[in-house]
């Protein structure tokens, strides 16, 4: 019988995978992370500071793409993950402080992938523990997102959502339907100069959505930890993320988080979701700034 340490016990709160499932899930999450940072590497070329050094960051994007392709196969998993980590670390270091949160999350996930060891290694406990850690990160992240919404205090009256509806087309399209035409017109006319406001919407549905968001972010992670509610909470959390990303459109962060939350499933559901996530990434790249960048424009 294998010895169980206190670290194993703590990590085990998010569930324990069967060895076969662990190996498959780890493969899928490795592919997801490598795919995400490869796509993001190309996407970022349209934005400062990456657009200021297109040759250097272009080469990094090529390198990350090679890592994603090579890392799709188990036999190249370790070198591809190491190389991807080195490239991404270099990007984060050189672009500091202009770093995206999903870049930092990806670095963390790559460390966990590497700590899990080679695919099919004898001690499957490392793979199981890596997956447990990733699930913890997802649950903690969602929980903190809810806590921070309460702490900063812009969600109880729907102020933040009203502010975003006024200044961000994604939020306007998704949440505009919850607001009367007059109120929406008022918000859209406010502008962004000092003195603009008030960004408080007289729309009960918007306030309800605002409060439901932080409430679910606080409750669903607890549901993910309790075995009886885990699967239901997993589906609900994914739906919450999809709803948030309809407005926020943080596609790469959303892709990573949905992938991490799918790790709460009994089986490797992420493998089935990967083609969909890949499709979203490619569509996003094509519709967003890549074509504009190729044509010589600048991303916003």
């Amino acid at each position: 019988m294998k010895e169980t340490s206190w670290a194993d016990r703590w990590l085990g709160w998010t569930g324990i995978d069967e060895p076969g499932a662990a190996s498959s899930k780890l493969r899928s999450v490795r592919r997801l992370v490598l795919l995400t940072i490869a796509c993001e590497g190309w996407f970022a070329l349209g934005y400062v500071p990456y657009s200021s050094h297109p040759m250097a960051y272009g080469l990094v994007a090529v390198g990350l793409l090679v890592c994603a392709i090579a890392g799709w196969q188990d036999r190249f998993a370790q070198p591809a993950s190491i190389m991807a980590f080195a490239l991404l670390f270099g990007v984060v270091y050189s672009a500091f402080p202009d770093n995206a949160n999903h870049q930092l999350l990806s670095l963390m996930l790559l460390i966990l992938v590497l700590l899990a060891g080679s695919p099919g290694s004898e001690d499957d406990r490392n793979a199981v523990a890596a997956l447990q850690s990733m699930r913890w990160i997802a649950a903690i992240g969602v929980f903190w997102a809810g806590v921070m919404k309460l702490y900063y205090g812009y969600w109880l009256g729907g102020e933040f959502l009203a502010f975003r509806v006024a200044g961000n087309s994604g939020f306007t399209q998704v949440l505009g339907i919850l607001i009367s035409n007059e109120e929406l017109a008022r918000l859209l006319s406010l502008g962004t100069d000092v003195g603009a406001g008030p960004f408080r919407a007289d729309a009960p549905l918007l306030v309800l959505v605002s409060n439901l968001t932080w409430f679910l972010e606080l409750v669903l992670p607890l549901g993910l930890l309790w075995p009886r509610t885990r699967q239901l909470s997993m589906v609900a959390t994914i739906l919450l993320f999809v709803a948030i990303e309809l407005g926020a459109r943080e596609v790469f962060f959303g892709g990573l988080m949905v992938g991490l939350i799918l790790l709460f499933a009994d089986r490797d559901r992420l493998a089935g979701a990967l083609p969909w996530i890949t499709g979203f990434y490619v569509a996003w790249l094509l519709q967003a700034d890549l074509l504009q960048w190729v044509a010589g424009g600048q991303g916003g």
Binding site: S5, A7, D8, W10, L11, L112, S133, W144, M148
Partner: peptide
């Protein structure tokens, strides 16, 4: 690196993710 140490490093990463937002808010 032994398996036990690897898993403790993993736990350390999780603990970092847990406590960092407090420092971040500060």
């Amino acid at each position: 690196m032994s398996g036990s140490i690897r898993r403790r490093v993993m736990l350390a990463i999780v603990v970092f993710v847990l406590v960092w937002p407090i420092a971040h808010a500060g």
